[in-house]
Amino acid sequence: MIEIQNLEVQFPGDSGPITVIDDLSLSIGKGEILGLVGESGCGKSLLAKSIMRLVPAPGKITSGEILFNGDDLLTLDESEIQCIRGNQISIILQEPMTSLNPVFTVGNQITEVLAIHRPEMKKNERRQRALDVMKRVGIESPDLRFDQYPHELSGGIRQRVLISIALICGDVQLLVADEPTTALDVTIQAQILDLFVQLQAEHQMALLLITHDLSVIAQTAHRVAVMYAGRLVEIADVAPLFENPLHPYTRGLMRSLPQIETRPRKSHLPTIPGTVPNLADLPAGCPFFDRCEYGREEACTSTVPRLEEVSDGHWVRCHLWREIPRFASATPTARSL
């Protein structure tokens, strides 16, 4: 349904442009939940903004195309993209505390979308629609909430208000959710994720779920893409990815989780040494080489690895994937309750 091809995003830097997203190709099918993982600064939020054509200046999409139902979003003019944004493609931003406007009521902010995309609707129709959507996303007593201001609401309700804003037009085909549950408590997180899974199942809505929490991915996504330093380094269906991650970075992430069932308490957690490389000064060759436990000087430092298809639908960007031993995953059992 949406197909991103060879996307490149650059920001101007002191010594020439810095490539923040490099040669990124990705597709999301109808009704699919695609999880996107990566560290801060790896370009995952920027990818979300690129899809919405909201790359903040002075950043620029320098090449590639984003095909949405066959149209290239990057060649549309501003009025055309306005018709799609918030209507067929919606975004939920990270911070439920700051992405609502504090001086407008919740109802005002939800119906604003309708005022733009459905100018023919009457005011009371808009209100009714908003109340229906608020109820759908699990806001109790919506007619009371409608006239409240964001500061009167808890984090969980605010996040639901943002979801209402994203869904109000009714024909959202792709929802981009950037860290939608990071700021929330575990109990509320479970409620929100449950809602996403329902929406996806009922409406065949596609969801791009950006997070750094592998548990969220494991519990909801169908497919997972892992980003590192502006590039995709691994894509696979969720089960094979967790069973046998091939990229050393993905492996490091999985290993560093404290898995209570398999690891002695207070023992050292395995780590990925070092820190993320500076995008303005990427080494030649594989950007993960410095931190990689499998890397070999002669194989990894001359060229950037290509994204290769290892098995059906499992792609990895590593020179040495053939040599990497099978992932010794101690299969965690369901938590005993």
Binding site: L193, Q219, A239
Partner: peptide, 8 residues
Amino acid sequence: SSLVPHPG
């Protein structure tokens, strides 16, 4: 409510 990091 806490999630287990395993899709299985």
